[in-house]
Each structure stands twice: as structure tokens, then as C-alpha cells.
Amino acid sequence: MNDQTNAWITAAAVGLINCHNCGLLHKVAQAHACCHRCGTPLHLRKPDSLSRTWAYLLAAYVLYIPANVLPIMVTTSLGSTQSDTILSGVSYLLVTGSWLVALVIFIASVFVPVLKLVILTYLVISVQMRSTWHPRERTRLYRLAEVMGRWSMVDIYVVTLMVALVKIQGLADIDAGSGAVAFGAVVVLTMLAAMSFDPRLIWDNAEKNHE
């Protein structure tokens, strides 16, 4: 396998651009043109990949604070109000004995967003430092970050359903809190960050080292 590594040639190295929609190859001279099979604008790499990914990541980091500090759900029951943040919701579930649900929410709302932010930040930095370390593993990390992010939406859906269901006249009422908005924004921003990142950049550095 190792001697094959050096024989690997990329499309960019021989002046070809891959249409990211239909996969048709075009000559680089046609850059800023559109794919003549499907009409998608052609780019050698995703445009401004690193700066866009950074912008989304930084915005996600900033909003991560209100997402965890502000309540995501406010319960009014018999005149008393109780505000729940993401973490207090998890600990409440632990106390009431549904540890499985507590675990699901903990993984989806705390573990996954943090892991996704860490992975993407690491990937962007590793590309900027021109790292050649294990490109295959880093591509795998990228795919992991890409598929798991959506599961963080679970808490948002739970809040939506609770709000719609628990409306007992004079007894209990549930309102969505502003923390839920911030948290939803964090999920969307990390998804956009993952979409803006171009995994081919990982391999571009690995190649330069071979030459």
C-alpha cells in the first residue's frame, strides 16, 4: 500500500476540477465557469472554506454560553415558576430516575455539540498549520462531526412538544425559554461550519509533503 501512496494523483494536480454536484471533471481553465452537464458553478475547493468555517465556529462558541446559561424551558405550575437550563434538565431527569433519558439528553445536548466544536476547530487549525498527520483519520473525524451534529436538535423538539402538550388550565403551563433559541442557533451554526469545511484541504497538505 505504501508505494502506492506516492503514485496517487489528485484531480487538482493534473488541472481538473470536480463538479461537486454531479462529479463531472472539467479543465481548470474553465474555473469560474459552470458545469456543462448540470450547471453548478465550479470551484477547485469550497470557496473561502477556512474563513467561513472559522466565522461559523466563532459565532457558535459565543452563542454556546447563553445556550447553557439561559433557561430553555419555563414551567409555571400552581403559581410557582421553575426555569430549566439544559444541564438542570439533565440533572432533574437523573433525580427522577429516568437515567436512560438523562443519558440521551446529556449526549445529544452537551456531549455532541462540544465534541463537534472541538473536532471542527481542531481540523481547521490542523489545516492552517499544514499538518500532514493521519489524513485518513482526520477525514473520518470530519465525517463523524458531519453526521452527529443533527442529534443535538432533540432538546429543541422536546421543548416544542412539551410546550404544545402541557397546557392545563390553571394548573401547569410550559413556555419555551430564550436558551432554546440560542441552542438552536448553535446547532445550525455548527452544521453550517461543517458544510463550509472542505475535507480535501486535509489531503492537499498531506500531498505537498510527498513532493
Binding site: I9, T10, A11, N18
Partner: peptide, 8 residues
């Protein structure tokens, strides 16, 4: 070309 690593 591979869409994730650009291998031809």
C-alpha cells in the same frame, strides 16, 4: 475525482 480527497 473523489469529492472528499480529490484523488483521481
Amino acid at each position: 475525482a473523489c469529492h472528499e480527497c480529490d484523488l483521481l
